[in-house]
Amino acid sequence: MSALDHVDLELLNALAEDHRATVVALAERLGLSRNTVQARMAKLERSGVFLSFERAMSPAALGYAIDAILHVQVRQADLPRITAELQEIPEVVQCHGMSGPVDLLVRVAARDTQHLFDIDARILAIDGVERTETSLAMGEVIGYRVRPLLAAARRGN
């Protein structure tokens, strides 16, 4: 990814403040032409700055009241296949490869504790999964955020 310049950082900050802003609104706010903003947005998208454009939704609103984190240990040689199989489990909402004693950090949404037990059993049944350890998320205390990083980048830190 290429380095972000001042205009890129200002555009990203404006998007972080109002993620629903239109290209026209962003252009007006930043004093740029609509074409410049569109070109910058396309460049940022191609360079991988933007993550998923999927709208974040509450699993609880869909009937999945339990948010759990599973620490999963696997046979390393089987990691790509295991990850592909995890992706087929609808209740797996996120998965990170980790360094250290835990290989995967898997976030799951469950309707109730029995459902969580069943999800864990399905994960353990995947060939190559050696062990899981489950923790319940009691609540999000700091949500995903990038605005502090943008502020630091704009200051030159």
Results as ranks from 00 to 15, higher is better:
residue 119 I to M: 04
residue 134 T to R: 03
residue 115 H to V: 00
residue 11 L to I: 14
residue 128 G to C: 11
residue 106 V to Y: 00
residue 142 I to N: 03
residue 46 R to Y: 01
residue 150 L to E: 01
residue 137 A to K: 03
residue 102 V to E: 02
residue 135 S to L: 15
residue 141 V to A: 07
residue 143 G to N: 06
residue 37 V to Q: 10
residue 95 C to W: 09
residue 132 T to K: 07
residue 152 A to M: 11
residue 1 M to P: 14
residue 20 R to N: 11
residue 93 V to S: 09
residue 49 V to G: 06
residue 2 S to G: 06
residue 121 A to R: 11
residue 154 R to P: 00
residue 123 I to L: 02
residue 151 A to N: 05
residue 8 D to S: 08
residue 106 V to E: 06
residue 118 D to R: 13
residue 14 A to L: 08
residue 147 R to Q: 12
residue 81 R to E: 12
residue 13 N to S: 14
residue 98 M to Q: 11
residue 128 G to E: 12
residue 69 I to Q: 09
residue 52 S to W: 04
residue 135 S to Y: 09
residue 145 R to M: 01
residue 99 S to E: 01
residue 52 S to F: 05
residue 115 H to K: 00
residue 145 R to C: 03
residue 16 A to Q: 04
residue 126 I to Q: 01
residue 81 R to A: 09
residue 27 A to P: 05
residue 1 M to K: 06
residue 2 S to L: 12
residue 95 C to F: 10
residue 43 K to S: 09
residue 76 Q to W: 08
residue 133 E to N: 14
residue 30 L to P: 01
residue 82 I to M: 10
residue 60 A to Q: 10
residue 21 A to R: 08
residue 32 L to K: 12
residue 148 P to C: 10
residue 34 R to T: 11
residue 43 K to D: 03
residue 127 D to H: 14
residue 108 V to L: 00
residue 50 F to K: 15
residue 13 N to M: 13
residue 148 P to W: 06
residue 142 I to F: 15
residue 28 E to Q: 13
residue 8 D to M: 04
residue 73 Q to I: 13
residue 45 E to D: 15
residue 34 R to A: 04
residue 57 M to Q: 12
residue 125 A to I: 03
residue 102 V to F: 01
residue 102 V to L: 01
residue 62 L to K: 14
residue 21 A to T: 04
residue 130 E to G: 08
residue 47 S to D: 11
residue 91 E to S: 13
residue 123 I to R: 01
residue 34 R to K: 12
residue 103 D to N: 14
residue 43 K to I: 05
residue 140 E to L: 03
residue 15 L to H: 00
residue 128 G to W: 13
residue 43 K to F: 03
residue 153 A to S: 10
residue 14 A to C: 05
residue 153 A to H: 05
residue 42 A to M: 03
residue 82 I to G: 04
residue 70 L to H: 07
residue 50 F to D: 15
residue 133 E to S: 14
residue 26 L to P: 02
residue 76 Q to G: 10
residue 77 A to T: 07
residue 47 S to W: 02
residue 59 P to M: 05
residue 96 H to S: 03
residue 31 G to H: 06
residue 67 D to S: 13
residue 136 L to T: 03
residue 145 R to T: 15
residue 23 V to N: 09
residue 118 D to I: 09
residue 123 I to Y: 08
residue 124 L to N: 02
residue 34 R to E: 13
residue 143 G to Q: 03
residue 108 V to F: 05
residue 123 I to H: 04
residue 12 L to M: 13
residue 140 E to K: 01
residue 140 E to A: 05
residue 44 L to V: 08
residue 40 R to S: 04
residue 5 D to E: 08
residue 7 V to C: 09
residue 147 R to A: 10
residue 36 T to V: 15
residue 87 Q to N: 14
residue 115 H to Q: 00
residue 69 I to P: 03
residue 136 L to K: 04
residue 130 E to K: 15
residue 66 I to C: 06
residue 43 K to M: 03
residue 49 V to C: 06
residue 45 E to V: 11
residue 9 L to V: 15
residue 113 T to W: 12
residue 155 R to F: 02
residue 142 I to T: 13
residue 57 M to S: 12
residue 25 A to E: 15
residue 155 R to I: 07
residue 93 V to P: 02
